[in-house]
Amino acid sequence: MTLLSLRDVRIHDGVGDRDVVHGISFELAPGAAVGIVGESGSGKTLTCRAVLGILPEHFTVAGGTVSLEGRDLAGLSANEWTALRGSTVAAVFQDPASYLNPSLKVGNQIAEVVRVKTGLGRRAAKDRALELLDSVRLPARVYGLYPHELSGGMLQRVLIATAIAADPRVLIADEATTALDVTVQAEILDLLADLRDRTGLALVVVSHDLAVVAQLCDEVLVLRAGETVEQGPVEQILYEPRHEYTRLLIAEHARYGLDRVLELEHVA
């Protein structure tokens, strides 16, 4: 069964009067992971926003269909979108601090989302928030801390905890590890892989780094200027890239990255 399906989705910029995403298609099954790779301006974030119903002003889905659990999302009312977000599809973005209120304890902010999204009472919402902190591998004392008391990696964990508060089936991670140190990035990617294994959460992983996406995903789309230049299983993209842009992304790792000096027997 398909959880999330995009068919030939086109996104139109009403101000520039032009299409900025020219027909993106992919299907996401429960527990699967799709990766979208591209530079800034490639349309990867707009595609995510279309799935979440939060396209910026003047941008519209001008063609194709987005469906979630078999339901076409075109023409949903604002209330219907609100009901969908968080409970079926949720997202985390690059700068976690900007999604939290700096003057409220993070635990209360998670609990508030739990109350709004699941209708639990205060006491139960707090218990659930503590449970969520535990599931993103944060100690319970984090509940009583303010955002400025947490590192970037911990803040991103708090955002992931909030995103999965209402048990969504799809989590979109849009450059969610880009601003983090490499070791912290790996912790967050490991956490996402772990959530996927434990709960069957399906992932859409968006990154400018092909290696990040390769680490987590089964299928990869390579976007450039709103166009899918390559799409397929991760092994095919890595070992038989057809488009020159994909080859450039791979060459960067192969010629200048760790891949150049890493001896394979060490890895195995």
Binding site: Q185, L189, D209, A211, Q215, I250, G257, L258, L264
Partner: peptide, 13 residues
Amino acid sequence: LIGSAPTLRSARV
């Protein structure tokens, strides 16, 4: 650090 750096080949190990 090495185990955390995303690479194309050793990714899943």
